[in-house]
Amino acid sequence: MNICVFLSAADLDERYTRPAREFAELLGKGGHTLVWGGSDVGLMKVVADGVERAGGRLVGVSVEFLQAKARPQADEMVVAKDLAERKALLLGKSDAIVIMVGGTGTLDEATEILELKKHGLTDKPVVLLNTEGFYDGLKQQFQRMDEEGFLPVPLTDLVFFADDGVAALAYLEESAGVQ
């Protein structure tokens, strides 16, 4: 399965890098392909390194203004002209989406995929990996949106909240019918 992972390119502490490495190892050992923003820095590098070490493939989609930070040894690397094209390419190359810890760029990517799902423009499974409770506030906000009628489909049809990589990958494999 080609799994797009939206995540930070920031250098983060062990609270976030350890679970990221563990998830990356699960992806690689499971024979999955990582589709990611292509950067060879920060948490993006941690995950790419882990997937590669565990035998998985790497498909990066960088963007022109970040091309200097792109991972040179990816199995495939595409350079988009802008962020909108990058997001479209990432989604087009993936079968499923995992949203890991990140900043405004990650949040932008997350809300775009959820908006597409809300309107029935994609049926790809989406997991929000809530490492160290990072997305507790966002989860609460989404639940409020659901309860108060702001979402035309149930929240559970849009996104699965996973506390760890094992639960995230199990959900994706179940959704895809992988045994």
Rank of each mutant, 00 (worst) to 15 (best):
L89C: 04
L90T: 12
L90W: 10
G92C: 01
G92N: 02
K93V: 01
K93S: 04
S94M: 09
S94Q: 11
S94P: 11
S94H: 08
D95P: 06
D95T: 02
D95K: 12
A96R: 11
A96D: 11
I97E: 10
I97G: 08
V98H: 12
V98K: 08
I99D: 04
M100I: 06
V101D: 06
V101L: 07
G102K: 03
T104P: 06
G105N: 13
T106N: 10
A110N: 06
A110V: 08
L114Y: 12
E115W: 11
L116I: 05
K117G: 08
G120L: 12
G120T: 14
L121V: 05
L121P: 01
T122F: 08
T122L: 04
D123M: 03
K124Q: 12
P125S: 12
V126N: 06
V126C: 15
L129C: 09
L129S: 07
N130G: 02
T131W: 03
T131C: 03
G133T: 05
G133D: 02
F134R: 01
F134I: 03
Y135L: 05
Y135F: 15
D136T: 05
L138G: 03
L138E: 02
Q141K: 01
Q141C: 00
Q141E: 03
F142L: 15
F142Q: 04
Q143A: 04
R144P: 00
R144Q: 11
M145I: 02
D146I: 03
D146E: 02
E147F: 00
F150V: 03
L151A: 12
V153L: 14
V153C: 11
V153E: 09
V153Y: 13
V153I: 15
P154K: 05
L155Y: 12
L158A: 10
F160Q: 08
F161P: 06
A162P: 03
A162T: 09
D163C: 00
D163A: 07
G165S: 06
G165Q: 09
G165V: 11
